[in-house]
C-alpha cells in the first residue's frame, strides 16, 4: 500500500533543499510586509550553508518556508525530491518528521523528557519500533558526546549539552534536510564554535543538506557557504568558505 510516508521515504536524499523564486508576504494593503522576495537557494547533500542577516531580514521566514511551516505565496520549495509547496497540512506534518530535521534556537527541548526520550519521541512520532528507536537514539547521543548523560533532563544539562541533544534529535529521523535556527544564541563563543563544528561534521557524516540561519559571523564562517539576507532577499555568496 502506498502511503504519504512511503512516498516521502522513496524520495529521501535525492536532492537536498531547493527554493525557487519563493515569495512570502504578511499582512495586506499598507501593512503588507514582504518577508521573502524572490528567494532562490539550493543546498546540496553534505553541505552546510549559513545565512546571516539582521533581525527582521527574513531569516526565520526562510526557515518557516523551507521547513513546511508556511506555504509561500509563490515559487517552489523542494525537499529531497518532493515539492512541498502545495502539499496538504497532514502531509506537510509528515514531511517535517520524515525529511526535515530542526535544530532550534536555545535547543527547545521538552522539560519533562530525558535526553534519550527527546530522541525517542521522534521515533514514536514516526511509529518506528521501540527497540530500533532506542538503539538509534543511544547511538546518536554517543555521536554528540552525551552517552553518559542520556537519562538527564534539560534542567540538568549545560547550554552546550542541550544544543547537542537538539542536534541529535534533529538527526533522529535521518532527514534529508537540516534546518538550524540560531544555534549559538545561548552559548559563549567557544561553545558556539564547538556546536557549529559538530553541525558541520554531522552534515557531512550523514550527507544532509543543512541550512543554518545565524547572526553569529564567527560561527557562520565555519559553513561551506555563507549567504547574506537583507530585506527578504538573498545576496550572492560573499564568502565561499572561511575555514
Amino acid at each position: 500500500m502506498t502511503t504519504p510516508r512511503n512516498v516521502i521515504a522513496e524520495h529521501r536524499r535525492l536532492g537536498g533543499l531547493r527554493l525557487e523564486d519563493v515569495c512570502l508576504r504578511y499582512g495586506d494593503g499598507d501593512e503588507e510586509v514582504i518577508a521573502l522576495d524572490n528567494v532562490s537557494l539550493s543546498v546540496n547533500p553534505g553541505e552546510l550553508v549559513a545565512v546571516v542577516g539582521a533581525s527582521g531580514s527574513g531569516k526565520s521566514s526562510l526557515l518557516a518556508v523551507a521547513g513546511a511551516m508556511r506555504r509561500p505565496d509563490s515559487g517552489h520549495v523542494v525537499v529531497g525530491d518532493v515539492d512541498i509547496t502545495t502539499l496538504p497540512a497532514a502531509q506537510r506534518s509528515a514531511m517535517r518528521h520524515d525529511l526535515i530535521g530542526f535544530v532550534f534556537q536555545g535547543s527547545n527541548l521538552f522539560a519533562s523528557l530525558s535526553a534519550l526520550e527527546q530522541l525517542e519521541l521522534v521515533g514514536r512520532i514516526g511509529h518506528a519500533p521501540k527497540a530500533q528507536t532506542r538503539h538509534r537514539a543511544r547511538g546518536l547521543l554517543d555521536e554528540v558526546g552525551l552517552a553518559s548523560k542520556a537519562a538527564r533532563r534539560p534542567a540538568h544539562l549545560s547550554g552546550g549539552e542541550r544544543q547537542r541533544v537538539g542536534i541529535a534529535r534533529a538527526l533522529m529521523a535521518a532527514p534529508a534536510v537540516l534546518l538550524v535556527d540560531e544555534p549559538t544564541s545561548a552559548l559563549d563563543h567557544q561553545r558556539g564554535i564547538d556546536i557549529v563544528t559538530l553541525l558541520r561534521d554531522e552534515t557531512r557524516r550523514h550527507e544532509i543538506a543543512t541550512l543554518m540561519v545565524t547572526h553569529d559571523l564567527s560561527a557562520a564562517h565555519l559553513a561551506d557557504r555563507l549567504i547574506e539576507m537583507r530585506d527578504g532577499r538573498l545576496t550572492p555568496a560573499t564568502s565561499a568558505t572561511a575555514h
Partner: peptide, 16 residues
C-alpha cells in the same frame, strides 16, 4: 503552548 508547537514542528499530527 511552546511544547505543543514543538511537537507539531517535529511532525506530530494534530490528531496525535
Amino acid at each position: 503552548k511552546a511544547d505543543i508547537g514543538l511537537m507539531k514542528a517535529l511532525g506530530t499530527s494534530n490528531f496525535a
